[in-house]
Nucleic acid binder design. Structure first.
Lengths: 224, 224
DNA sequence: GTGGCAAGAGTGTTGAACAATCTTTTCTTG
DNA sequence: CAAGAAAAGATTGTTCAACACTCTTGCCAC
């Protein structure tokens, strides 16, 4: 399997602090850590078997990525995605993704990752594995961003998508959230491969507007 | 004086690690630390009078911002801006700034910061204080990004502009680098205030293309 | 001259200790 | 009994010293 996210690793140091950050990151997007939950330095350093200093370095990284917040002398907490942040994230996505695909040259190397992500999503859809479908969908969009050939945009998008996964974790009914977008992604890819980047950009914009509306509605409903 | 950058602080914790990071950041953009230079933990922690652990947290933050690089078991070094990174940065700037001003509603609050930055630049120009002119010019563009009303884009831009200042620090002849853009910024602001965001976006695009070419040429020349 | 080996220097990580701050409990006082 | 102040407890912030691990340097044998 080829994952588009391989093209944009967040930070790949072999150090223990980096590994620790990665483990916490995975726990976050897997939903094992609930938004709003406090992460006490003592207990986490115990359970992950690293020293407090190392753990604090990991916390610092994740805070910088927007996954944790740090209240002075109070502790670190898992970020609670707000409606404002969701709106902000989608604004950034529309700006970056649409420009990326709209200005991309034909047959860009990253399109290979787009295709791989679409096929992966279709595969997982048949297996009814909706979290995996969500992952594949996000890989697709990471590949779209990669069309811009910008290391910095790739990094930004990696952060944003991790934050968005946090929000998705709050919502149940993963099928409802991810199923419609498998085919939409396939259509967008087809438009791009047909050398019509303008139409692809427009379709992507519609996609994102729709997705934002769905997520916001689901968010408002789940808060009740 | 009103600085646009006040709207997008990078990270403002009252902790000692944050302060330390800020001090190093200032030294970096002031050119006191040369790109490529190694920052030994022992000597820096001594000269800044903080412990190694605290310093390492600061290093971690700055590494994440792209100002330092960390080679395992070798140490941390001031990033050396490459041509590739300059090209990347300008690509991101064109994408974000032009969209921000092109889609901004009239009389956006951030335009106040744009005007303040332009006036500041004109003032410093008469005083022949070219580094200050450069700062004001960057504040102008930070204000342009603020037109998009996106906290995340503001943060990204803060990082990018710090990195760009690193590159500027490598180049001499600050007047040549900054003088032409004072009036160009004023023109762009005028176009926006005249309710012609499309023309403003186009002018900004031309500006950025010109600026990129100048910086790259100066960079290539200074490398000889 | 080349290969490997030992010493040195620097980072990576740990644990304990203490200071600073917030929270909770308890005690005083009206 | 209620309200506020003082004290105790818990958690984070910071420092220090020590050691493990890795890279570099220079020496020595061959």
């Amino acid at each position: 399997m080829v994952r588009a996210s391989e093209k944009a690793p967040i930070e790949t140091g072999p150090g223990l602090a980096d590994q620790t950050a990665e483990r916490i990151r995975q726990s976050l997007i897997a939903g094992k850590l609930v938004p709003g939950q406090q992460l006490s330095e003592a207990s986490v350093s115990n359970s992950l078997d690293v020293s407090r200093n190392t753990l604090r370095e990991a916390f610092r990284m994740l805070t910088h990525e927007g996954l944790l917040t740090q209240k002075p002398y109070r502790g670190v907490f898992v970020v609670v995605p707000s409606m404002a942040s969701i709106v902000d994230i989608y604004r950034v996505r529309r700006m970056i993704e649409c420009q990326a695909i709209g200005h991309a040259p034909p047959k860009h190397p990253a399109s290979r990752f787009m295709r791989a992500a679409v096929e992966e999503a279709q595969l997982k859809r048949e297996a009814d594995d909706w979290p995996a479908v969500g992952t594949a969908n996000m890989d697709f969009h990471a590949a779209v961003v990669a069309l811009a050939d910008s290391e910095r945009l790739d990094r930004l998008y990696a952060n944003i998508s991790a934050e968005l996964r946090l929000a998705f974790g709050l919502l149940d009914d993963a099928e409802y959230l991810h199923r419609p977008y498998v085919d939409l992604n396939a259509q967008i890819l087809a438009l791009y491969e047909n050398d019509d980047p303008g139409a692809a950009a427009q379709a992507l914009e519609d996609y994102l507007v729709l997705s934002e509306r769905t997520v916001l509605a689901s968010y408002a409903r789940n808060l009740a």
